Simulated scan of single mutants.
Amino acid sequence: MVMNAPQIQGGTLTGLSLAGRDGTWDLTHQDGRIVVLRPSTTTGGGFVMPRLADIHVHLDKTFTACRMPHRAQSLFDAIDMMAADTANWTVDDLKKRAETGLARAYAHGTALMRSHVDWHGKEAPLAWSVLSDMARQWRGRVDLQLASLTPLDDLVEIGASVARTVREDGGVLGAFVYRNEDLCQKIRTVFDLAEKHGLDLDFHVDEGLEPEACGIDTIIAETARRSMAGHVLCGHGCALAVRDPDEVRLVLEKGAEAGVGLTVLPGANSYLQDGGPGRTPRLRGLAPLHEARAAGIPVMIGSDNVRDGFYPYGDYDLWDVYRLAVLNRHLPHHDWLESISAGPARWMGRDLGLREGAPASFIRFDARGPGDALSRAGARREVWQNGRRIPEFQGDDR
């Protein structure tokens, strides 16, 4: 686990390359806050950026890859394998796996996290209770927000019970939407629940490569109709990668007008979409990031699944996920940093910006800038929180 570091009362870091700013900078901190941030006359101090905000993970499923009977052949194969594994989800099992995930995320620089939790009955699942307790225990290190995740057809039936508990626990209401019958009415029911209970929404939507999967269109239309800009997040959107480009352009324009957000998950989606034994996948299933942002949609990048049936890799290192997105999606590396930090932080109601008076909480890479840090996976990294350095992860090796 991550051990506490002794408090550093103050000091100055010089010659820093600072995310989003030209030139080099000196940063002076005192009693856990940035007191001076000014242009520097020196170089070589490293690359500094705000801490990370991982808005889409699955702590209930994490670190179960070793228990899977085979490599997932599809999204729905992974769903079936994970459903079978829930027989092993005891309090101790959930705590141990999620604790490891949070500790790794903290050591890598994550400050905020939203975890989806599978929810299939009227009563809250065991994982919701366990992770709610852990959210309280980890507050101030990794601030953890929970989002329920229920298949849309089920949520229509049990939504009242789910929404009440989610509201009481300060969570987010979520649904899995994929080629459902009577889609418009079911989406309206979910929005009714959100309005009644004052909840934000977070959808897993169109997570496949069928062009007819267009749940995101209905969500966007309902968001606009309810004037819920800034309160509805759509994750995955894989089908947008295979739909008609002119059609997608209109969808994205409407999404921007409605004020929805989009989360792209380069790990699990690249791994599961267009897969199969003995063949090389051609389609990667990643939503059009460039086009979405150009249209005005806030675009975020998340870790998604980590070492489970959906994706047997990862380490809750959002910087490593960012590297994957930069390579796969041809992102200008210096211009998309907000997608893993400031952007999702704002969506969760927080500010991770580096300025005078703000907490001295940041990540410093032994690198000349973001491109250099991305190019060298082994570049030394320091995570600072409130003026003190966080030690590297120490714990069980999964």
Rank of each mutant, 00 (worst) to 15 (best):
R249H: 02
A103R: 12
K96N: 10
R307D: 04
L149Y: 02
D92L: 09
A127Q: 11
Y316N: 15
V91H: 11
H56T: 06
C234P: 08
W319C: 10
Y311M: 02
S132H: 15
D202V: 03
L173W: 01
H333P: 14
M228I: 03
E210K: 08
L250V: 13
P370W: 14
H58D: 01
A295D: 00
T280L: 10
V36G: 02
E253N: 08
E382K: 09
T64N: 05
V36K: 01
V260E: 00
W25G: 03
M3N: 12
D22C: 04
T223R: 02
W138N: 12
P211M: 01
E392W: 05
V2Y: 05
H236A: 09
K186Q: 11
T218K: 06
R114D: 09
I220V: 14
L201T: 03
L75V: 09
R329F: 13
I219W: 03
D351I: 03
G369R: 07
F362E: 10
F176A: 06
L193R: 02
Y316E: 08
D54W: 04
P288L: 00
V91A: 09
F203M: 05
R33S: 13
V383F: 08
R141L: 13
E338K: 14
A239Q: 06
L146W: 10
G276I: 03
F203T: 01
D182C: 10
A221W: 09
N305I: 00
R368Y: 04
D85G: 00
H116E: 06
A295T: 00
D85S: 11
E168A: 15
T62W: 07
G278T: 01
R329T: 14
V156E: 10
L146H: 09
G15Q: 08
P69W: 08
H236M: 05
L144F: 03
H108C: 15
E123K: 11
G276Q: 00
G121H: 14
A19T: 01
L18D: 02
S161L: 14
L286M: 07
E338G: 12
D366N: 07
T14Q: 11
Y316A: 05
A98Y: 13
E338R: 13
R226M: 04
E212N: 05
T165E: 02
K196I: 08
W347K: 02
E291T: 00
H58L: 04
G357P: 11
D60F: 03
D118L: 05
R329Q: 15
E207R: 01
G198C: 02
A241K: 05
D92F: 13
H29R: 06
P332D: 10
H204P: 09
W119N: 04
I363T: 12
G159T: 07
T189K: 15
R188P: 01
P298Y: 01
V142M: 12
I216C: 10
V2W: 01
D396W: 13
V142F: 08
D320H: 15
Q137I: 14
S303Q: 07
R51K: 15
D77R: 04
Y271S: 02
G215P: 02
W384V: 08
V36Q: 07
H236E: 04
A87D: 08
S40W: 03
P288V: 01
S270K: 03
E392A: 12
V48E: 00
A65C: 06
A241M: 04
F362S: 05
G237N: 14
T90E: 05
A87L: 13
G230V: 06
I390G: 06
